[in-house]
């Protein structure tokens, strides 16, 4: 409970901080619109040439594009700022301040920074996904909607774990800037349903870099292509990932020797 209170407090401070820069909201909104517009143009190019992409129709891919933008928005809002901050802190030795506080270090490190305006991606994404859902011949049932939301959250947890595992590498190997590029590069692959990719890449995108899991599975649920068995199995996988992340975090923080001390 205390962890939750700390998280909420940090969130409030970040929100208050960013509300001072209101013009940034519009700039961020323009950026979100540019990126979604680009995505829509690409879809138009694709469907100009083919009625479906490996079985995925245009409205279904609109849902995927919307979810991709939603996940990206949450990622930029909560995860990316925290990850960047941890990497900087480890390099400069200021990570001491996280470890010496009487709150769990993983929780504290994860909630210290938020970029509120990145949520514009979420808003734009919801609009695009809704557009796709309305255009579907069979709109999703309530269960399918709920499944989509659950998988969206699970996917986000999986991305959080991956982000944290990667950043834990900073405890061993301090110069991690390029790893961030690696991650953003991989992230782009989430724009299309994993079913489009060859089998090896599909597995990589579901389990190793769970971007496919975060984007494709919620979309599958919303478009009625996700079975119960698969949903449960993926939730199990995400739970295991949470445990592993926790272990790696513990190991990593043990490695850390304050450079400033």
């Amino acid at each position: 409970m205390r962890a939750l209170r700390v998280a909420l407090l940090h969130l409030r401070v970040s929100v208050m901080n960013e509300l001072q820069y209101r013009a940034n909201f519009f700039i961020q909104l323009i950026q979100s619109l540019i990126s979604v517009a680009t995505g829509l143009i690409v879809l138009a190019l694709i469907f100009d040439r083919t009625p479906d992409l490996n079985g995925w129709t245009r409205p279904q891919l609109l849902v995927v594009l919307g979810i991709y933008s939603i996940v990206g928005g949450f990622f930029g809002f909560g995860l990316e700022p925290a990850v960047v901050r941890i990497m900087g802190d480890v390099r400069e030795g200021t990570f001491d301040y996280v470890l010496t506080k009487p709150v769990d270090s993983q929780v504290l490190a994860s909630v210290r920074a938020f970029r509120v305006w990145r949520l514009t991606d979420v808003v734009v994404g919801i609009a695009v996904a809704t557009w796709g859902l309305v255009a579907l011949p069979n709109p999703p049932s309530l269960t399918e909607l709920a499944g989509g939301v659950v998988m969206l959250m699970a996917g986000f947890v999986a991305l959080y774990c991956l982000g944290l595992i990667i950043v834990t590498g900073a405890f061993w190997y301090t110069n991690m800037d390029m790893v961030q590029d690696l991650f953003t590069g991989m992230y782009r692959a989430g724009q299309y349903p994993t079913g489009v990719y060859p089998r090896w890449l599909r597995l990589v995108l579901t389990f190793l870099v769970p971007i496919g899991l975060a984007v494709t599975t919620p979309s599958q649920s919303l478009t009625g292509q996700l079975t119960w068995q698969r949903l449960v199995a993926l939730l199990g996988f995400v739970t295991a990932l949470v445990v592993v992340t926790r272990l790696i975090w513990k190991l990593g923080t043990k490695r850390y020797s304050g450079a400033s001390a």
Binding site: I46, R49, T50, L53, N54, N175, D177, M178, V179, D181, L182, F183, T184, G185, M186, Y187, R188, A189, Q191, Y192, V196, Y197, P198, L201
Partner: peptide
């Protein structure tokens, strides 16, 4: 290692385009 990672991260993008357009080509 940094430079290598950087390049590996970059290949995701073209691989995505490649897969999408080859599958359209095959369908056509």
């Amino acid at each position: 290692l940094n430079n290598f990672m950087f390049l590996v991260g970059m290949i995701a993008e073209p691989v995505v385009y490649l897969v999408v357009w080859s599958s359209i080509a095959e369908r056509q």
